[in-house]
């Protein structure tokens, strides 16, 4: 049987395909090709200049013996596991506050949003570096003389605080979703004697589930790629306590000229991120099934 294409009268069945050609080419050139070639380069001993030499799974095997890789992976995971939940909670709380028929909401919303727009700008990263020096603004204000940069926890905290400061984009997504919940739901619940906290857990939270999922994924993916802040602020130290996978890939490529190894790590990072996203997706999907 011939497939019928639902197009306006007189439109060729390949017209739509013509329009999406830029995407197809972009996918092949800038996603599929790099993805496949990073796996293949990962199978070679390659310094980026002289021709690559096939070395089998050496890079992938040495990755699991490599102290630096294991450390970078652990640092990145620790960073993600602290940052993402905190950021989600803060952005949801602020969104809930802003949703309470507040006056000057536009001013508050703009102030909370600005850091996330400017946040990855290098100027902001440099500013952040100044804030946490031994006699910098943060120590002046809280009246301490913590040497943030010399302690592993302190250094990681600097970077986590920078990214927490940028909670605005997640907050905006929550705020718009909260606006879409009909007031009638809350009115009806109130008639039935439902308290505020109960309302939050029985109405708001379930209705926000898709948006929470979206925010988790977006924040997770961007946190897994952290590079700018540790590169500029802490240089990965002290004792490699802020040395993320992003930094490892960069160093292996441009500092140690191990292009083969850098590509293998890139590929593993891709697989790890995809696997995590799929797991989230399955968990979120299964919960949906249970509710029915």
């Amino acid at each position: 049987m011939k497939k019928i294409y639902h197009n306006p009268v007189g439109v060729w069945k390949y017209t739509g395909l013509m329009f999406v050609i830029p995407f197809i080419l972009g996918f092949l050139l800038f996603m599929l090709y790099p993805f496949v070639s990073s796996f293949i380069f990962g199978l070679t001993d390659y310094n980026g200049i002289s021709p690559p030499e096939f070395s089998g799974l050496d890079n992938y095997i040495s990755m699991f013996r490599d102290e630096d890789f294991r450390n970078a992976f652990a640092v990145t995971l620790k960073y993600v596991l602290i940052l993402v939940p905190l950021k989600l909670i803060i952005s949801l709380l602020v969104a809930l506050l802003l949703n309470m028929e507040i006056r000057f909401i536009g001013v508050y919303r703009t102030i909370f949003y600005i850091p996330s727009i400017l946040g990855s700008n290098l100027a902001i990263v440099i500013m952040w570096q100044f804030l946490f020096t031994e006699n910098g603004l943060v120590n002046q204000i809280i009246g301490t003389d913590i040497s943030w940069y010399s302690s592993p926890h302190g250094s990681l905290a600097i970077i986590i605080l920078l990214r927490l400061w940028e909670f605005g984009s997640a907050m905006i997504i929550f705020l718009n979703a909260l606006r879409d919940i009909p007031q009638e739901y809350y009115d009806a619940a109130k008639v039935d004697g439902c308290g505020k906290i109960r309302c939050f857990f029985s109405i708001t939270l379930p209705l926000l589930k898709n948006v929470i999922f979206l925010n988790v994924i977006l924040q997770f993916i961007s946190a897994m790629q952290e590079f700018n802040a540790p590169y500029m602020i802490t240089g990965g130290g002290p004792l490699k306590s802020t040395y993320t996978i992003g930094m490892l890939i960069y160093d292996e490529m441009f500092k140690y000229h191990n292009a083969g190894y850098a590509n293998a790590v890139s590929w593993v990072l891709f697989v790890a991120v995809t696997a995590f996203v799929l797991i989230f997706y399955v968990i979120a999907g299964r919960k949906k099934e249970n509710r029915k």
Binding site: V20, F23, F27, M31, Q225, I249, F270
Partner: peptide
């Protein structure tokens, strides 16, 4: 198929293709 691929690319971590792209 193309739409599914498109949705998938939105979740691609850019840093994992940056080195092969550089080599290209």
């Amino acid at each position: 198929l193309l739409y599914a691929v498109f949705m998938g690319t939105m979740f691609m971590p850019a840093i994992s293709v940056i080195m092969p792209t550089y080599l290209m």
